[in-house]
Every structure is written in structure tokens, then in C-alpha cells.
Design a protein around this nucleic acid. Structure first.
Lengths: 234, 234
DNA sequence: GCAAAAGTGTTGCGAATACACCCATGG
DNA sequence: CCATGGGTGTATTCGCAACACTTTTGC
């Protein structure tokens, strides 16, 4: 086996699938592509990997460039490498799965890109194989959130149980019994009740909770079981 | 954002983490590297991706070249892209996680490579970041097998419940209660009891079972729960 | 005073665990 | 006939799901 010319080098990019939650729906942050080909079409935020840069570093850089955010939840999703996925020439893309607190984003928005939050249910066409990436990321979100408490990454520091339930219901496109839901959530011991209430969405008001960071980090890998009928997932 | 010279192209390889089970221990198929650098050292089986080849196609080709096998269980594990991971120059590696029936391998062994099955517990040093790949694959095996019935991929067509239990115990490096284990396994409905017995490892003999392929494919994504204390996993 | 959302408690069922004995057979 | 591994049954516990009513308060 020699390194003959049949094994060409290729460009390698990263693309970020950025999830957010606006209190009602799950959203994805997409941009209007600034360069040819496909200029002006909707696209995931991405960029080429630099010479002396690892993949995750590149994804962090790209995400920071768009959102101004650091230290957000990010994990590698999949390496896409179909020879024809980019018409401009052979380019691999390492896709990264990202969960951000949408309220932090709004403050720091860079205007260098025409970015917009799109509902997952009403996603515009995306360039190349970005739709495949989104689909895979969406499935992974459902899969992981059924087992690990990752959805807190989508919420602000303080949130209410009803807000959390709406988020879970959005992720699984279903409804849960609120009594069982709150018992299950509280039984994890991950939440710390606050003294103040959120008064905007109801007359009575709902208590805020904060995540217990210490327990969260310790228990992150513990298996949970948030989904009643997991046969619906893959 | 332009495609400047800072975004060099790079070589892209695939590497296969190939698991097998010899009836007693979990094994990994490794080869003696045939080319410089690191010639003669132990390595995962891998190869560069061809010009018009997707990543998974490349992994299938590489696996076939070593084992003669097709249609085995394979999934993408992770894309490794640290700039210095290969001293010969910037090379990314897409690692593939593979489970094979070790008995099928033995018949079809290609002698082009100096390949050997090494116990996971007694792994020799591997080149580059291949140890990281093995570690990640090993964790993924534990993680997935706790939820999905993938370990059958490591067994021959006909196997006994005690053999299956030894396999699970090897994967989790623990012991299970055999009564609860067989009940749990049989309750999945995935196994079909055969009329004949395996007589080599006991006087009484243990009934063979076969996997119900139809149900296996249908139920593959159903969540199971094979591990008593999942907090031990990540 | 009423509409609208928050919050809480009980019961029954199914799954998981812990645990002990009998079976078949080769030597 | 006995040692070895194969195979089965039961009681208890625990977690989950189903389900209904009371509380608070802005209007």
C-alpha cells in the first residue's frame, strides 16, 4: 500500500448544528451563505479547518465567530465525506452538534452574517448535505436527551418546571403528564428551587429553579429515562 | 471568508477498530504496520481514502482487505484530526467501530498482513493515537450494548445462553446472576431455541439459540437495560 | 368570582433483583 | 455416584404510569 495519486488530499471543513429554544419551539441557527457556490442560500454555519488546528478547535472558533459564545455544549456528530457532497471540489465536513442558551446569543449577535433562528418544524431548504446533518443531529438530540440531562443546556440559568416541560415536549413532539414529569425531574436531585417566581406566563407564577452544577457534572452520564415509549426512537 | 492558503488540504484515512470474541475474552484485531514511519509496530488496520470514495466505503474496503468479510456490523466512531497525530504530515482519520464473528474471520484470513487478535486487557502499545481510538471504541461498546442488542454481532450463528453471558460479562468486566440474565435475554423475544446442544463445555450440554433476524432488525433500536448499575458507565 | 396555570398525592402494575434447588451426563 | 455446569421458579422491592383535585391570583 503506497501513497499513490489515487489518494488525493481534500479540504476539511466543520459545520455546526446549533440548537436553541425560544420557550416554545426548538430552533436552529442558520445563515445565508456569503460565498459561491450557492451564495444567498440557507446554510449551516461552518468553515474550513486551518492548517494547525484540530477539528473541535475549528468548530469552537466557527461557533464563536457567529455567536460570540464560548464554553457551550458541543460534541462531534459525524464526519460527512461523500465525494460529491460539495460541488466546488472534494471537501469533507466534520459536523458538530451544539446546544446554546438562546438568550445569551441575542445579546452578543455578530452582524457579520445574515443569521436567523428557524423552527425545526419549518426548516427552509439547506445547501449540500446540510439537511442530512440536521436530521442526524435532531435524532441524536432525541436519543441523548432520553438518557442524559442535556436539555438544560438550552435553558437560561433560571427556569421553571413548566418551561422545562415545554422543552421536552418540543423535543419529542408529544405531551407529558405534568405530575409525573415534575416528579421525575425533581427526583434526579439536579434542581435547586429558587425563592422567586416567573410571573409572565401565569397569574399564580411558577418557581424558578437552577441547575445544581456540581451534581449535574457528576450525574451527567447517569442513565435517565425521560421518554415513556422509547420504541419511537431509533 | 475566502479559501486562503491557511486552509491546507489534508490526507484522510480510515482506521478500523475490530472487535471479536473468542468464547472467553474480548479481542481486537491489530496488524504489524508495513510502512514507515513506525514500521513493525502494532497498529489498527487502516488506509487512505481514495479520490472517489466515501468514508464508509473506504472502511468497508479496508476491512474486507484484511478479513475477507463483507456485510459486518460497522459504524462511524469518531473523526480524529489533531494536527500532529501523524508525524508524516497532516492526516485526519475517520475511525470505524466494527464487530465481527471471530469464527468467520479465521476461515478467510488474508496473509498479506501480520495480523493478530489481542486481548483488550492486555493490549500492546499502538502507534499514533490508535490507543485513544481503542479506548473510545471500548467505551462505546459498553455504552451501546447496555441499550441495544449489538453483542450478537460478535457471536456465531448458533450460540448458547451461557456463551452469551460470558460475552456480556467480558464486556462489562463483571458477573451477572445467570437466572436473571437468561430471563432478561429470553424476554426480548430475539432468540429462537434450537433442537441441538453444545456439548463441548459441559456434560449436560446447553441448547443452541439463533437470533431471530426479523425481530432483531425490528427491535434493534428498542432500548434494553442489560446493565444493573449503569452509573458505572459514562 | 372566575379563568388559567401551578402544584401536589395515591394506587396499581410491571420490571428488576435476590435468592435456592433440581436436572442431565461424562467420567 | 458424584462433580460440573445447565436450567428453572418465587417473593419482594422499586420505579413508572395513570389519574383528579386544590391553590393562587390577575383580570
Amino acid at each position: 500500500m503506497t501513497r499513490s495519486s489515487r489518494q488525493a488530499k481534500m479540504m476539511v471543513a466543520v459545520d455546526c448544528i446549533i440548537f436553541g429554544f425560544d420557550g416554545q419551539d426548538l430552533k436552529l441557527l442558520v445563515i445565508k451563505r456569503a460565498l459561491q457556490p450557492e451564495k444567498g442560500k440557507w446554510s449551516l454555519m461552518g468553515g474550513l479547518v486551518n492548517e494547525n488546528e484540530g477539528f473541535e478547535d475549528a468548530a469552537i472558533r466557527v461557533l464563536h465567530k457567529l455567536t460570540g459564545l464560548d464554553g457551550v455544549y458541543m460534541e462531534q456528530l459525524f464526519a460527512f465525506g461523500h465525494p460529491d457532497r460539495d460541488p466546488a471540489g472534494r471537501t469533507a465536513s466534520i459536523a458538530y452538534f451544539t446546544l446554546i442558551d438562546i438568550s445569551k446569543y441575542e445579546q452578543q449577535l455578530s452582524h457579520e452574517y445574515e443569521a436567523d433562528w428557524k423552527s425545526l418544524k419549518d426548516m427552509p431548504k439547506l445547501i449540500f448535505d446540510h439537511m442530512d446533518m440536521v436530521k442526524m443531529a435532531w435524532e441524536k438530540l432525541q436519543y441523548k436527551a432520553a438518557i442524559h440531562p442535556i436539555l438544560f443546556e438550552l435553558l437560561p440559568l433560571k427556569f421553571t418546571i413548566p418551561q422545562l416541560q415545554i422543552l421536552y415536549e418540543a423535543v419529542y413532539d408529544t405531551v407529558f403528564d405534568k405530575r409525573n414529569f415534575s416528579r421525575k425531574i425533581l427526583s434526579t436531585g439536579l434542581l435547586i428551587k429558587q425563592k422567586d417566581k416567573e410571573k409572565a406566563s401565569s397569574k399564580r407564577g411558577a418557581f424558578y429553579y437552577k441547575l445544581d452544577k456540581r451534581k449535574y457534572n457528576a450525574k451527567f452520564h447517569a442513565f435517565l429515562n425521560f421518554v415513556p415509549d422509547p420504541d419511537n426512537l431509533k
